[in-house]
Computed example of a mutant assay.
Amino acid sequence: MSAAHWRKAMNFTAARRDWSGGRAVAPPGRAPAVAPPSAPGARDWRLWRHVGVRHVVVLAAVLVYPWIVPPFFAFQIGGQALTLGLIALSLTFLAGYGGMLSLAQMTIAGIAGYVVAILGVSGTAEISLGWPWWLVVILAIAAGTLAATFIGWLSVRTEGIYTIMITLAIGVAFFYLAQQNYAIFNGFQGFQKVLPPVVLGIDWRAPIPYYYLALFWALAGYFFIKHLIRAPFGVALQGVRDNARRMSALGYSPVAHRVAAYAVAGVIASIGGVLMVWYNGLISPGSVGVSWLINILIIAVLGGMRHPIGPFIGAVVFVLLQNFAIDLVDRERFNLVIGVIFLVIVLFSPDGLLGWWDGLREWTRRRIDRPRSAIHGAGWRSVGVQQARPASRS
């Protein structure tokens, strides 16, 4: 059974819960609706009808943002939030659409970052090899993807807390490997002055160029995930998440889909890792420590794991708190502030900030629709009374 048939099977008619091999069954006594032939350009219209005014406004805002704010906000807030959001997007894809909660996504990003520092140019010239930047980036993404595939191969045969523990153990093991190995990872010092290349005469670590570089890959990752979750692979992956045994009976391999999902998430996290090492200008074991493994999870949960925009919203909130919470509390108590906010989100909005936003929209819609329904109801009652009066007189 193909993924297209599976998608049709999941869209069977709600009025009659019959299983008919993936074909929708019309209720008794009602002729099935026949769609009119598509006119030229109708497909484009169907695609564009999902683009609302809010999408255009948000896109215009993120494009204009670095020109109306100081360089600090463009680089430290905007660039960092987009980079962390891209790494958290890989976790959102795995957990939200694959049902696999991995704590090793920052480890994968760190592997890609270390490959950039080791094979590229850094301040530690005796270890770095100084290869061309374009080759280094390709090898870094490939290394991160291979590492993610290996982690997925190890962990997909488990579920729940066991998957979390395996990925956490791998992340901690890589942290101690990088900290104690000096021949390759340069120990606890790591690599300094790992700067992005100057291409087309542009310094890509300058605030505005780096912001647009991070924005390009953030949009690419966002639209890629939006397309993938509607593609046959994404639909089958969500079927594996909901009922792996049924998908296996339909001819799908749950293990293969889950490992492939880890590989896809590894590509996204690796790109984020390359951007992160260019943003920081360095990489060290502290960049892949346990705190950052947890921070990526916090970012994904803050925004919400049911939509690809969630991790970017969570990253913006996290970066703002990271930079400005010290004005209210001590820097050492930042983790306490993040922990309290995380606890509030988990207790009162399992869908993160997006859940609160949807709840507010639903409450506003009900408040607007209630007076309308009352007015319409009063109008119909008055009409009924006026029509009934002549009958009573006769």
Rank of each mutant, 00 (worst) to 15 (best):
F342C: 03
W292P: 11
R54W: 11
A261C: 05
T13P: 01
W357V: 14
L59Y: 00
Y176L: 03
P209W: 14
I170A: 07
L354V: 10
T167M: 03
V56D: 02
I271Y: 05
N280V: 02
G144P: 12
Y252T: 01
T13I: 04
V194P: 09
V277S: 09
S349R: 03
R43E: 02
Q80Y: 12
A4N: 05
A26L: 07
R370P: 10
I338Y: 15
V116H: 05
V235C: 03
A183P: 12
W48P: 01
K226V: 08
V199D: 06
S373E: 04
Q179V: 04
A173L: 15
G314Q: 05
Q189L: 07
A61M: 10
I298S: 04
T92S: 14
G144D: 10
I294M: 02
F224Y: 14
A391E: 13
P28Q: 01
F342R: 01
R17T: 07
V340A: 01
F324Y: 15
L47Y: 04
G187F: 00
I87C: 04
G98V: 09
K8H: 08
V51A: 12
I313H: 02
V255I: 15
W48T: 11
P254Q: 15
S38I: 01
G113D: 13
F224D: 03
W67S: 14
F188A: 15
I127L: 11
P70H: 00
G359W: 07
V317Y: 00
L91E: 13
G110P: 15
N181Y: 01
V316Y: 01
D242N: 08
L63H: 00
L336H: 06
S38Q: 06
V115K: 11
V337M: 03
V51H: 00
R245W: 04
I375D: 07
A169S: 15
W134A: 15
I283P: 13
V58H: 02
Q322C: 04
I87L: 07
G144I: 03
F175E: 13
I271S: 11
V319E: 05
I151R: 11
A74K: 06
R245D: 14
D327W: 14
